[in-house]
Design a protein around this nucleic acid. Structure first.
Ligand SMILES: [Mn+2]
Ligand SMILES: [Mn+2]
Ligand SMILES: [Zn+2]
Ligand SMILES: [Zn+2]
Lengths: 150, 150
DNA sequence: CATGTTATTGCAATCAATTGCGATTACTAA
DNA sequence: TTAGTAATCGCAATTGATTGCAATAACATG
């Protein structure tokens, strides 16, 4: 629970108010081990605070993101959030067929980033990147269902 | 205009109907040299066909995408479309500050794709990829405005 | 503890994108 | 050329995300 306390301290230091809505969203995100979709957060929040509004959830998550408390990741076309990983960044491979999310060490993208930097002076947004695709298991099932068809 | 005829032939071969709406969207996309946002296409289409509906524009663009006639690229959070580049794929760097889009040869991502393939058996969606970030010019302006501040 | 200031909230409106549905129309085949 | 049929369209409703605004509540100050 040290992380939780730290986040609250960050809020206070930057002059943000400690509202019940913010504390609830924080504890929900903190109690999850992976990413959470915005609606998941919203549904969970309504259970302890029925007046919670989806706009407040979005505003809170964006505030937490600005403060560095949570990290945003676009999976497909939906936004997901998770507590910022203090042990270093990571990326994701997300399967478009089964929605499985696999972690990816940052070094797989470091080279790409460096190349764009050196060759074009371009600084890409690759903090917490999710690349969609088809995982190895779903490639197999796809292959098998094609076999069966003939 | 050879491309245009080819697209029409593709529609007919796959059993899709040649509607005025489809022909208009096709000619608009074909007459543009870069990406077009969906609303750009819609506004242009309404000029020659005032009854055009935005839903039809989306459905038409998605059909064209499935047929391989156009390619979709997500720039920031908006979808853009362009005629499929027959001379080979390409990617983009898009500046978050000035919205400038720069083309990127596919070889910059080939390595990344191969690594995911070999190490994890993951097949990433990287057909027509756009990475956002800050271009070299905007990095300079950012730096200068920070200098001026002190 | 009471009070004033202002950040924050809930609600409704809005925007990009998608979808269900009944009306229309492109094409097939007589 | 003329139906018949299914694909397609326009329209309205819906969804995820965002925003303006008036009401509310967190917090500083006395
Ligand atoms: Mn993550
Ligand atoms: Mn392109
Ligand atoms: Zn999968
Ligand atoms: Zn720029």
């Amino acid at each position: 629970m040290i992380k939780h306390e730290q986040a609250i301290e960050t809020l206070r230091l930057k002059g943000h108010r400690l509202t019940p809505q913010r504390l609830i969203v924080l504890s929900i995100i903190a109690s999850s081990d992976g990413h959470m979709g915005v609606d998941e957060v919203f549904q969970a929040a309504k259970k302890t605070y029925p007046y919670m509004d989806i706009a407040t959830v979005y505003r809170t998550l964006h505030l937490f993101k600005d403060l560095g408390v949570v990290t945003e990741v676009a999976i497909g076309d939906r936004l997901h959030f998770e507590l910022t990983d203090l042990d270093g960044h990571h990326h994701h491979m997300v399967c478009r067929a089964c929605n499985g999310a696999f972690n990816l060490s940052p070094h797989y993208l470091a080279e790409f980033r460096d190349t764009l930097n050196k060759e074009f002076g371009f600084e890409p947004d690759l903090e917490h990147f999710a690349v969609t695709g088809i995982c190895i298991d779903c490639q197999r099932s796809e292959f098998e269902s094609k076999e069966k068809q003939k």
